[in-house]
């Protein structure tokens, strides 16, 4: 499913170069749930964006679904994300001013599908997450828990096979964190591959987590 082969990522910061990732190699099988653990600045987010094709590695090779995503040009990697990857951000990152339904269909707007098709897809996801009754409400007027569910519905709108979650519980209280973990568990049950970057201890002894990978200063330990 995911294969990283001697991946390096450097950022130039003034004169000196920061090595955010060095010599990272790993493999994640289909349907696996993997937690990426590490202190702040250890390179978790960087790794996720490389896997999503949002940035390119300085060297090394990244294959996702047997496609070498690190070599894809920008527009193809975007299409790849649209087709296969769902994203859950820390702080939800909903688009303020749009309502729930518009936020949920946002990933597929450029896909040139008829609006009613998108709305049907969105309805199914919103019903599964119990937010269908709020479909026309501005996301700024939702509770934290509802916002979180909108973010999950949005990540699922394209029926992804891989979900990348970056610190999904960073801004949540204990109750919402538990709720989120339940949603992730259901996704795992449905066969989706999960990669969760976090330093939240809640994730470290969950039964459905298959593996914990620890990053330290950009290296796997």
């Amino acid at each position: 499913m995911i294969r990283l082969h001697h991946v390096y990522k450097r950022f130039a910061q003034g004169d000196e170069a920061i090595e955010a990732l060095s010599d990272v190699s790993l493999e994640i099988a289909q349907g696996e749930c993997v937690v990426l653990r590490g202190a702040s600045g250890s390179g978790k987010s960087t790794l996720l964006s490389l896997i999503a094709g949002l940035a390119q590695p300085s060297s090394g090779e990244i294959r996702v679904l047997d496609r070498e995503i690190s070599k894809l040009p920008e527009h193809l990697s975007a299409l790849f994300r649209r087709a296969h990857i769902g994203f859950i951000f820390q702080k939800f990152h909903l688009i303020p001013g749009l309502n729930v339904e518009e936020n949920v269909i946002a990933p597929l707007i450029p896909a040139n599908l008829p609006l009613h098709v998108l709305q049907e897809k969105a309805r199914a996801k919103m019903e599964a997450l119990c937010i269908a009754s709020k479909a026309k409400r501005d996301v700024r007027r939702l509770s934290g828990g509802e916002q979180q569910r909108v973010a999950i519905a949005r990540a699922l709108i394209n029926d992804p096979v891989l979900i990348l979650a970056d610190e999904p519980t960073a801004n949540l209280d204990a109750k919402l964190s538990t709720e989120l973990i339940e949603h992730l568990y259901m996704l795992k049950q449905s066969g989706v591959t999960l990669l969760i970057a976090t330093h939240d201890p809640l994730f470290f002894d969950l039964a459905f987590v298959d593996r914990i990978i620890e990053l330290k200063n950009g290296r796997i330990v």
Binding site: S49, A52, L54, E74, H75, A78, L79, R81, R82, A83, I85, F87, F89, H93, I95, A106, P107, L108, I109, P110, R154, N158
Partner: peptide, 10 residues
């Protein structure tokens, strides 16, 4: 956000 969600630059 839109880029991460699969929007192309274009």
């Amino acid at each position: 956000i839109l880029k991460a969600l699969g929007w192309r630059m274009s």
